[in-house]
Every structure is written in structure tokens, then in C-alpha cells.
Design a protein around this nucleic acid. Structure first.
Lengths: 415, 415
DNA sequence: TCATGTTTGTTAGTAAAGCTTACGAACAAA
DNA sequence: TTTGTTCGTAAGCTTTACTAACAAACATGA
């Protein structure tokens, strides 16, 4: 592999690994009389496994170890992974040759024995382009480093652009971002509203007027870089997962619409029609509710979407003596509705953690409290006792950083 | 491996692979510039992969191919798996030596070329013991062959037995079943009510008065055979999954209580507290409802559990002119309530198939219809358009057969 | 009838991957 | 200075699946 390959990624003619696709798992299965892993669980084996597959798995394991634990010696990595020092040296030599790992010199702290040479992922070697198309008025983008920190930002005003015009805006945004860094770019990650399939085709995004837009292919053609596209909420939950390390996680993203991203057993949930997490138009409760744009009454979005909420809050007379309690009442009701919809999901999946993403001034207060109370009151106490509902720690940048995680994960097997 | 090992499984001192545990996935991850699988999706690599792990995966792949496609030649298996004829011959030789595969002689149908020697899983080589503890009055058991057909049955009257006494009944039942077959037994699968952890410890099963009962260990000690224990609904969905081949599936099991089993992306969902599928005590709707044993009002179980339903139906005056419509009304309301709880789950997971298991005379009619209607009316039409809600094809034996699938999957990697 | 082509399964040898064993280098502690 | 420890590497082995080649056994067509 030439250095050019590393920097620019695969040629556009080569298939780029599709994000959010079905896992191609190489599963070790115990067999009669000779279980290999104590906690292994057998599934239908999916395809053959060749030695080089094992190699690239172990390669990613080394990278992951360095990425999360930071600079350490080859011997440290060997101990942590269970592979031998010899194998680690071999893998690390490859990684160094590819420019992904660098030697940092000898370890300071003096211990008996030969001093260790510290190695680490070369965190300055690559940047990632993250794009967030979920806002209504503008498209956001950022250059993100391998640690997930944002290096620089850019945005374009959407100005109601739809269809092909909106695609041009995305391309323009990415071009600006690419121009703002001289560091090689590992890939481009995009969080889009709507239903996105594993090949990065936006099947349907009414807000942007997209139907079957092959965004992944378009961007890959344009920039000759690896491109990963997925639904914005599904991308957002990746950022949260990267931070929380929890393997069962539901993130509810409240903005112009309401969507969710799910990780179960450490894996993103895609859904049979690639529409997992689309809970905005699930009807809440058995007492009707305001009419929704979709035609039904009492959808989650009519209770919870930010435009609806702010409209209702703005209708309060600010000079009224009970303006504060009226505000609380509105937020409380919204939270209660969210809890009603989430209760069956939390119960069925036995979730331990639910994360809210959206404007904190709306969500982090009466709404949050009402959701927790409702959830606890409507599910089994003993199972939801340790249920946590919290605001995301990622604030505004959750989709951008999730997009970076998606690229990291897709290109390096690291998150 | 001696033949004894194959017949009797691992010694009890050896750890038996835990059923329903976290998947130990050997994942091939694409890396920068060199994607290996077009549709691969990277996850956090879990552990090292050695050549022998690849071997056992491929071994299971061969077994799986033979198991599902039936008798065929080594060359056929090679074509189907993508492995070479040489490798298949090598793997098959192992499997034949272990007694799992047999040669059936030359293929009848004459084609040009050297006639093929048919091989197949030796479906008469092993039996499986399946146990169903989910009924209230009795424990059911069966001897099941490798095709999932029931060879013989046994049952014990529970007579209200709880705690240690109930464990003795299970042991007695299994002993009876083992005595009724002379074929080597691959393993024992148990579907228990309540919360069961991946090590086969029944954390809590109020009906049987079990708390932290190490059922897997007890049975493994007693019979020196591989034992797999899981929640009854989670076991039931395995039977359905084995039959349907669908990778996203929710099964609702309605009996003395109401529980669910979930398979997402081809994997059983366990839940962070091992309580996935426990939807019986999720509150339905926003209009209260009858008081439940758990203290809340309007839990799913009070609308749907068989004892509650029959009690309500029995209260109808059979001589009344509108007895039939009263009955329909009750079943319709139950179905509606089920739909209300399922809608958020179906929406969030974008499920394509939901299966009902329980007494067909109650479920398969007005109740079923009302559930479908409610689901469609409360979720997004375009996503639930191809949603199917159907009765299980497995009837009464769903837990027994699911238990067999669990053993097959755990011991051979076949389902 | 007999040569030709096809398919099967096996043998022989090769490449890749990670292992074990062994060793030199470099240091701390006694 | 000696001893023990730790690190990284070299050499050789084992496992695995691959490619190449071939004999056996059959169908087909001249």
C-alpha cells in the first residue's frame, strides 16, 4: 500500500465500506465437547474466515487498545490483548509503516529492566470531516481530529434548498472543510435526517426533498475519500456510545423532529427497513392529541418537537403571575408523553441508559423529570431501578462527533 | 477428542458455554485504504483471533450448510461456502471422525463426471432434551431430534412446588427423558419463566419461588451434559427464528403472564439486566385500567394474560343474545392494548415481523385483528406497511423446540 | 467402441498467521 | 560487579487454507 492510498483512501472505483450495514461477523462457535469461549454464543455463521481476516481483526484490536489506553509499550499491548509480544511487534511494524502508529521514545518512569519504547496512534496523522444535515436552516460541518476534538468549523445556509441544490451545498461545505486542513483526511462522515440505507443512499428525507439520493456515492466520487452516511440520530448515538462505553443505549434526539438512535449489545440497530429509531410519528397515549402533519393525532412529535414546544411556550403571557408554572406544565406534559412512548421500549429492551439530545433549556428540567417519573411509574420497578435518563454531554456537536466516530469505526475499527 | 466426549459433552468441571451470553464476535474490520468486506461494519474488536478460531468458525459453517440444505457432496458444500474442496474435505473428515457427519453413498442422479459421495449431518446421531417450565401447573419436557422433531414427551405435575422442591422436579423430569432414549444426548435446553442470566442462573422467577437458582450448574452437575438455560419467551423466539430465517423478530408469549423475546440483527437481545422482553408490567395507555398484582394500574398483563382474559370471557352470560359480540369486544380491547404497547417498540426497532404465541382460540381472531389495526394506526404507515403480525406455527411446543435450537446453536453453531 | 470432456475427491506443496523458544540489550537493585 | 528483570527481536514450528495437479468415474458424441 502506498502512502497515497492511506492519505486519499480507496479509489472511487473500489467499493467503500458501507456504514451502518449488516455486521459481517466472524464468530467463533463452540462445538460439542470443546467449548472455546466460556461466554461464547453461537449464531448462524455468516461466511468463511481466512487467516487474513484474523489478521485484520487483531490489527484493529491493537489500534483500539492504543486508541483508548493511550501511549504504551508493545509489551503492554501484548499483555492487554493476550497476543504475544512477537505478534504485537509484527502488527505494530505494519501500522508504523502505514503511518497510523508512531514511536514516542523511551518511557520516562524508570522500572527495572530494559526501558520500554512508547508507541501510540499517531493522533496528528489524520483528520476527519464530519457533516450534520439535521438542522433545518443550515448544514454544519467540522474538521475533527482522531481524538474527536473539533479543529475547525464551517457551515452553509440552507436557504430552503432541496434536491440537487442541497446536494451541491453539501459538496460545497465538504470542499471548504477539506481546504481548511493540510492533514490527510481519513474519511467523511455524514449524519442526514430521514431514512438512510447501509449503502449511504438517503431513501427519504422529506425536509430536504430527497428521495433515493445516493449521497455516499456522490461524495465518494467527488472527493475520492471513504464516505459514511447514516441517519442523524443513529449517528448521534455513536458519539454517545463512544463516550459512555455502555453496550445498550437509546438516544432521543429532539429538534425540528424527534428521532432516536439505538445501540443494543454494542451494535447499532438498523431496522428491517433501515428506519430504526423513527419514533416521531408513534402515537402517544389513548386520549388523542393535536393533529400532526402526518395526519394522525397525538404523535410524539406534536408533543415534543422543538417548534411545537416553543410555539406553546411563546403563547404564555410572560406578565401573567403564573407564567412560570404554565411553562413547567407544558414541559411536564411533553416529558410525560416522551415517557409514555419510551416505557414499552425500555421495558422490552431492558435498557439501562437513555440519553436526551436537544436544547438543554427545554429538556433539562421539568421535562426531564417528568420523563423519568413516567418511565419509572410505567415499567417494572426492579428492572428500571438503575435506569438512567440523562442529557448528552456532547451538546450541539453530537452529530458531528458521531460522524467522526462512524468514520473512525469504519476505517480503523476504532471507537 | 474421544467419542465419550462427544456423547457426554464436557466434564462438569469444564466451563459450559453460557447460553444467551454476550456475543464473542470475531469481527473483520476494514482499514484505511483497504476495505476487506464491502458491507462490513466495524465494531470495537473484542478479543484476539487465532487460526484455530477461524477453523471452528468454518467448521460450524460447514455444519450449518449441511444442516439447512441437507445431503450434498463435498464439492457442493465448497461451492456454497466459498471454501475450497480441499478445505471442505479436511473439515468434513474431522466431522466424520467425531460422528457428526456421515457419508450416505453415491448420488443417484447421474451427471457427467465422477459421481459425488453424499454427506449429511448424522441426524440420528444425537438427541436433545428440551424442558419448558413456563406453564403454571406442570413442567414439560421432550426428547427432540436434530431436525427439531419431538421424539417423545414427559411431564411432571408441579403441584405448587417451589424452591428446591421444584428443582428436584426438573431433575426428575430430565432423568425420565434421558432414560427414554439410548441415542447420545447433545445437551439439555431449559426455558424458564423469570429473569435468567447468561450463566443460566435464574435470578428471579416468582411463580416458582426461585431467586438466584443456579439451574444451569445444578443440571450440569447432575447429568454431566451441556446445559443451556434462558427465559421462556427468549427461548421461544429462537424456535421462531430458526423457522422464519428473519433477522429482526419480536415474539409475544401470552400465557399465565405476558412476555416477549427479541431477535435484532440476528442476535437475541438480552438486556442490561438480563430482563429483555419483560413487557408484562408495562402500563398501557393513559386511561388507567384494572389493578395489577404488581400494584400498578393498567399493566399489559391485566389486559392480556390468559387467566384474566378467560375470567372476563367466562363472566359473559352465554345465553345473552349478544354474547358473541361481548366476547369480540373483550378480545378486541385486549388486542388494542397489545398494539398500543407494541407500537413504540415496532417503531423504534423498525420491526418487520411480530409473532404471537399462546392459545389460538383467544389470540387468533378479533384480538389479532385489533392488534394489527392498532399497530398500523399508531406507527408510521410507510414503515409498517410490510409489518406482519402472525400466529406462531409452532403451537404448544414452541419453548421445547426453542430449547432444542438453543442447544443446537450453543453446541454445534447450527440453527 | 473409444476418445473426449466433466466432475469429484485427494495428494503435494505453498503462503500466511501466530506461537514457542531463545537471545541480546538495557536497566535497577543489591 | 553481579543478579534479576523487562523489552524487543530472530528463528523455527504449527495450524490453516490456498493453488496446482491428478486419478477415478462417469456422460457424451464421433
Amino acid at each position: 500500500m502506498t502512502e497515497q492510498d492511506v492519505e486519499r483512501g480507496p479509489e472511487p472505483t473500489e467499493p467503500v465500506p458501507a456504514p451502518y450495514g449488516a455486521a459481517t461477523d466472524l464468530l467463533t462457535v463452540p462445538f460439542a465437547g470443546a467449548p472455546i469461549f466460556t461466554r461464547a454464543r453461537a449464531l448462524r455463521p455468516t461466511g468463511k474466515v481466512l487467516p487474513e481476516h484474523a489478521r485484520s481483526h487483531n490489527r484493529a484490536l491493537v489500534l483500539q487498545t492504543l486508541y483508548t489506553a493511550g501511549a504504551q509499550s508493545r509489551a503492554d499491548v501484548a499483555r492487554e490483548t493476550g497476543l504475544t509480544r512477537v505478534t504485537i511487534s509484527d502488527l505494530v511494524a505494519d501500522l508504523i509503516a502505514e503511518g497510523l502508529v508512531i514511536e514516542l521514545g523511551q518511557r520516562e518512569h524508570a522500572r527495572p529492566g530494559k526501558p520500554a519504547i512508547l508507541i501510540d496512534v499517531d493522533r496528528a496523522a489524520f483528520h476527519i470531516i464530519g457533516v450534520d444535515l439535521s438542522e433545518h436552516q443550515r448544514f454544519l460541518g467540522a474538521v475533527i481530529d482522531l481524538d474527536g476534538d473539533i479543529v475547525s468549523r464551517a457551515e452553509v445556509d440552507r436557504a430552503g434548498a432541496t434536491g440537487e441544490h442541497a446536494i451541491d451545498l453539501v459538496i460545497e461545505l465538504v470542499r471548504t472543510l477539506l481546504g481548511s486542513t493540510t492533514t490527510p483526511v481519513l474519511g467523511i462522515g455524514v449524519g442526514s435526517p430521514g431514512v438512510v440505507d447501509p449503502l449511504g443512499v438517503v431513501r427519504s428525507a422529506p425536509n430536504i426533498g430527497w428521495t433515493d439520493v445516493a449521497l455516499q456515492a456522490r461524495l465518494a466520487d467527488e472527493f475520492s475519500l471513504p464516505v459514511h452516511v447514516a441517519n442523524d440520530a443513529n449517528v448521534a448515538v455513536l458519539a454517545e456510545h463512544g463516550a459512555s462505553q455502555l453496550d445498550d443505549l437509546l438516544l432521543v434526539k429532539i429538534g425540528h423532529g424527534v428521532g432516536a438512535g439505538l445501540i443494543i449489545g454494542g451494535r447499532p440497530v438498523i431496522g428491517s427497513g433501515f428506519a430504526a429509531g423513527e419514533i416521531g410519528h408513534v402515537v402517544v397515549g389513548t386520549d388523542g392529541g393535536p393533529r400532526c402533519a402526518c395526519g394522525k393525532h397525538g404523535c410524539l412529535e406534536v408533543w415534543l418537537a422543538v417548534p411545537r414546544l416553543t410555539a406553546r411556550l411563546d403563547a404564555i403571557d410572560p406578565d401573567s403571575p403564573d407564567a412560570a408554572s404554565a411553562r413547567d406544565e407544558i414541559l411536564h406534559e411533553a416529558g410525560r408523553r416522551l415517557g409514555i412512548v419510551l416505557a414499552p421500549v425500555v421495558g422490552a429492551l431492558n435498557l439501562a441508559e437513555v440519553v436526551l439530545s436537544g436544547p438543554a433549556e427545554l429538556l433539562d428540567g421539568a421535562l426531564h423529570e417528568a420523563t423519568v417519573d413516567t418511565l419509572r411509574n410505567r415499567t417494572m420497578a426492579e428492572h428500571s431501578r438503575d435506569l438512567r435518563l440523562r442529557m448528552t454531554a456532547q451538546a450541539q456537536d453530537i452529530v458531528l462527533r458521531g460522524a467522526a466516530v462512524m468514520v473512525l469505526s469504519g476505517q480503523l475499527g476504532v471507537a
